[in-house]
Amino acid sequence: MESENKNLSPEQSLDLIASMIRQTQGNVSSGSFYFLLWGWVITLCNFGMYILAKFYSPSNAAFIWTLTIPAWIITMIYASRQDKTRSITTHLDKISMWLWIALGITILPSWIFGSVIDWRVNALVLMPVGMATFVSGIIIRFKPLLFGGITFWIAGTLCFIVSPLDQYLIGGVAMIFGYLLPGYMLRSKK
């Protein structure tokens, strides 16, 4: 595309516009890293919480959730590095980024004020996580994430009817099917 002022016919102009737009399609980035990182961290926290609360000290078990703090730091560093190396950011990339930031904002009060409701926050967390996972599956056109989202919705609903302790088992299993399996499938797809 060297000539700056090549005389374009209207048809050529429209063809050029269409061909350039095609060049940008299929460029939505798919972040298996985040699903694997958070999948492992939250799975460990859920099962760890269950084991500690059931067999050791229920009052101190919640400290295992401090594992999410380094996960947040790693997420921010990784996202910042990815942002710098990416040659293109699509509108869907931006929507995807804000979807996950919005999820963080949605579930943050559950973590801050969880003690008010005796830490029975699993359903409140799993339902929006299901929504974000499902929508991510739509954005990157990846069916395992759709099933992952549905898994979180089912798990979140179950959490309303099981005991507070069993909710952590459900949460851990939901993470395996909702984040880890789709995450590994996404990574192997690359």
Partner: peptide
Amino acid sequence: SILMSVESA
């Protein structure tokens, strides 16, 4: 055309 269809490039 490219910039119309992406956020940034």
